[in-house]
């Protein structure tokens, strides 16, 4: 039997790698993939907790997270396409039009 803590370690490690990718990379696609990484880290923790607490509510939450991730990917990629058409760049630092 694998202890619950190993799963929580794994989940927080994947989440932290996602955070690092989001704040250290400047390519918008990689930043977007990092968000998916963070969601997956949380999902691992939720499924593990749901299994060890013998309750299905955590898995229901994972189900909704996957649904929202699908919606978010569709919207985000549409924004990226629209932005690339207007600016022809994927570098986050060059998209500063709304900076005060």
């Amino acid at each position: 039997m694998v202890p619950l803590y190993w799963y929580l370690w794994l989940g927080s490690a994947v989440f932290a790698i996602g955070v690092f990718g989001f704040i250290a990379r400047r390519n918008i696609i990689i930043m977007f993939l990092s968000i998916e990484l963070m969601l997956n880290g949380v999902n691992i923790s939720l499924v593990a907790l749901s299994h060890y607490m013998q309750d299905l509510r955590g898995q229901i939450l994972v189900f909704f997270v996957i649904a929202v991730a699908a919606a978010e990917a569709a919207i985000g990629l549409a924004i990226i396409i629209a932005m690339f058409r207007n600016r022809a760049t994927l570098h986050a630092d060059e998209i500063a039009g709304m900076k005060g």
Binding site: L8, S12, F15, A16, A24
Partner: peptide, 21 residues
């Protein structure tokens, strides 16, 4: 591919692991 100061950002990520633990 990285912003400047990525080492500091890596430390932030490690700090997040520490806080979660």
């Amino acid at each position: 591919q990285f912003t400047g100061g990525w080492l500091f950002r890596g430390l932030i990520a490690l700090g997040i692991i520490y806080v979660l633990r």
